[in-house]
């Protein structure tokens, strides 16, 4: 059965996969690297997403999901998921369940993932919809922090050295992780995808991350970022609302649901890459995949490995989302022309 998704579903999946796990923590990394320049640096980098997606959209047909390439991406996405899983395990351990062994938490996560993977394709495609109200709720409460905002925290700019800017640019790639999913998901969308849709998506994405960066920046003092690794959660924790204490506890779970779905989308993509022969046996594939994931993920659930896998991921991302696609597309185009055939 050939899967067809609408462009709306494509963007929803892409958005959730790209925001999923990283949006609570990328602020600290960036601010620590470049200080107050983080916001404009991110804005500048974020604007690149539109040309990036545009190129992908223009040439996605030239990107063939042939054996070795598919294998490489499969492994890469698997590792992305494993590091997300490790991060989830670690974060939950720290924020809410200090005594529960991380492996138990991760096992539960993986059980849900397994159920999601062994379900129909439509389920993974559509489940993002339940997150939309939660995302809005999330934003609303993050915005409550504006009461205590100090706008001058955004200035002065231009203080960072070139070296720092470089480091910051690499950290700024974190929210871009997952953009290469577009190449795969695009193949399920029949017909053309207009550029303005890409532009709207890029705008929403940029707006989301920008405010997730700027609000903590105006809320916390610069020095605090060194101490706080999840600024968004920390902000929610310090909000004073009448009906309950510790908003963060509630929002940790919304974030978690978000990450679940993001991982589900990655898993869905990996499953799509499997060779036709073994693709059929859904449940078995899902089970093997989940066990592997748990095995790898549980190794990654300490502060050190979380940090390490995070930074390794950034370089892997640059390779898989920028270098490799363009290389493959170039090669395919050149060879395609040599053989006299039109680019497919």
């Amino acid at each position: 059965m050939k899967l067809h998704i609408t462009s709306l579903q494509l963007f929803l999946m892409l958005f959730i996969a790209m925001t999923g796990t990283v949006f609570v923590s990328f602020q600290s990394l960036m601010v620590n690297a470049v200080g107050r320049d983080a916001w404009w640096l991110f804005l500048a980098q974020g604007l690149l997403i539109l040309p990036h997606l545009w190129l992908f959209n223009r040439f996605y047909q030239d990107f063939k999901w042939s054996g070795p390439i598919a294998f490489l991406y499969g492994v890469y996405w698997f590792l992305v998921m494993a590091s997300f899983l490790g991060y989830i395990g670690y974060t939950l351990n720290v924020w809410a369940y200090p005594k529960t062994p991380a492996i138990v938490i991760m096992a539960l996560v993986v059980i849900v993932l397994f159920y999601m993977m062994s379900s129909r394709d439509e389920t993974t495609v559509n489940i993002g919809v339940i997150l939309i109200p939660m995302i809005l709720l999330f934003m609303l409460f993050v915005y409550m922090g504006i009461n205590h905002a100090v706008w001058t925290n955004l200035f002065p700019v231009g203080e960072a050295s070139l070296q720092e800017l470089q480091r910051g640019s690499i950290k700024a790639q974190l929210p871009f992780i997952g953009i290469e999913l577009f190449l795969l998901l695009r193949t399920f969308v029949p017909g053309k995808l207009s550029t303005w849709k890409l532009a709207v998506y890029s705008g929403i994405w940029l707006l989301f991350f920008l405010q997730m960066l700027i609000i903590p920046m105006v809320y916390f003092a610069l020095e605090e970022f060194k101490l706080i690794s999840e600024p968004i959660m920390y902000m929610l924790k310090s909000q004073d609302v009448a009906f309950m204490e510790r908003l963060d506890l509630l929002f940790v779970y919304i974030w978690l649901a978000w990450s679940f779905v993001a991982m589900g989308i990655y898993a869905f993509s990996v499953m799509r890459l499997l060779p036709e022969k073994i693709k059929k046996r859904r449940t078995r594939n899902a089970a093997v995949f989940c066990i592997l994931l748990l095995a790898v993920g549980s190794r990654l659930a300490t502060k050190e490995t979380v940090r390490l896998s995070g930074s390794l991921l950034l370089y892997a991302h640059l390779f898989f989302a920028v270098a490799l696609p363009f290389l493959v597309i170039m090669v395919n185009r050149v060879f395609g022309k040599k053989r006299g055939g039109k680019p497919a």
């Binding site: 999601m116 489940i127 649901a257």
Partner: peptide, 26 residues
């Protein structure tokens, strides 16, 4: 598992509801 357990339950419930169909209609 506290809230975490509830989240797991809710997600499973939603995945189930998404899987479900009535006369092949979602």
């Amino acid at each position: 598992f506290g809230f975490f357990g509830m989240l797991i339950g809710t997600l499973i419930l939603f995945v189930h509801l998404l899987n479900l169909s009535s006369l092949k209609q979602p």
